[in-house]
């Protein structure tokens, strides 16, 4: 029943739909890597991003590019506010990691509720139409959404990696991620680096929500459910490993979709939880090459030790 066309179609569509997951996972992993924070408030930023684009296109009747720019500006402003008013204030007060974690959930729920009051519970999309025309390439259906989605995601991720590898600010981020106290001793402005991580994450999720919202309907609670995949990819990819999160998001998407070839469709959604369970129980540091496992393990122990002992010391 399943020929090469079906397999290739599944692979292609999985790759295309993995784009927004890659962006959400990278944003989540970046903030976790730099600030050591499980930032579930990312869902709030995602919700703000989507509804800003929605307002731009559907209420203000702006063209898509203008709504995109508006969305980026508003999302970056929201990320700035979240870092400066929320996280920075909490760090200054030396609250526990658990408290910050709870705070991120409250922010997400608060924004979801606010969105519900303003925009209602009817699902919305960025553009009025979500049907994208299709071109057949050797019997593989490629929609007009696929290539721009893949192109923009690859460009965004490549830009992020280049930024972290080749720019001074990017290296500061890596420095703070490796050892925030030592980085500060070397004169790196930790506040600035934390803010930068939040802003980059904001830009990534904004792009992700724009892609998602041009293809599927969004409800005020949608962002939180999309976050589950990002968290799974971050854990499976290895906490602190951005490349791992990207790869895990792509591979998880492909495996989940391709699984239909060998298992009944009702088990498809269950697979994500199986992977997550296995990763947490057997690979808490993520699936990594043996060569790098030792270094990462010690880094994780160091992070855990710092968080458990003196959160105040990290300011």
């Amino acid at each position: 029943m399943f020929d090469a066309t079906i397999v290739l179609q599944i692979l292609w569509t999985s790759l295309a739909t993995a784009t927004y997951y890659v962006l959400f996972a990278t944003a989540f992993a970046l903030v976790l890597k730099v600030t050591r924070l499980f930032n579930f408030a990312q869902a709030a930023i995602m919700t703000i991003a989507f509804y800003t684009a929605f307002v731009g296109v559907q209420w203000l009747k702006w063209p898509g590019w203008a709504a995109f720019v508006l969305m980026m500006v508003v999302t970056l402003a929201a990320s700035y506010a979240l870092e400066r008013i929320g996280f920075e204030a909490l760090r200054r007060r030396g609250v526990s990691v658990m408290f910050v974690f709870v705070f991120t959930f409250i922010v997400s729920e608060f924004i979801a509720y606010l969105a519900m009051l303003i925009f209602g519970t009817w699902p919305q999309t960025v553009f009025p139409m979500i049907f994208w025309p299709v071109t057949l390439v050797g019997n593989i259906a490629i929609s007009a959404w696929d290539l721009p989605a893949i192109g923009s995601t690859v460009a965004a991720i490549a830009a992020l990696f280049a930024f972290m590898r080749f720019t001074r600010l990017g290296q500061f981020m890596v420095g703070v991620a490796d050892n925030p106290d030592l980085a500060e001793l070397y004169g790196i402005n930790r506040r600035l680096v934390f803010l930068l991580a939040m802003l980059i994450a904001g830009a990534l999720v904004a792009l992700g929500m724009f892609l998602y919202g041009t293809r599927a309907q969004v409800l005020p609670q949608t962002a939180l459910s999309l976050m589950l995949f990002a968290v799974a990819a971050t854990i499976i990819g290895g906490i602190g490993n951005l490349g791992g999160a990207v790869a895990a998001a792509v591979i998880l998407g492909v495996i989940q979709n391709a699984s239909i070839l060998v298992i009944p469709s009702e088990w498809q959604g269950f697979l994500l939880y199986v992977f997550l369970f296995l990763a947490i129980v057997f690979f808490p540091n993520g699936l990594r090459l043996p060569r790098r496992r030792e270094r990462f393990g010690s880094a994780t122990r160091k992070i855990a030790g710092e968080e458990a002992s003196t959160p105040e010391s990290r300011g």
Partner: peptide
């Protein structure tokens, strides 16, 4: 008879089975 997860955002697999 194909199903999809309530959290699914892509339905290619079940729909290709239907097409077949």
């Amino acid at each position: 008879t194909e199903t999809y997860d309530p959290k699914a955002t892509d339905f290619t697999g079940p729909l290709l089975k239907v097409r077949a």
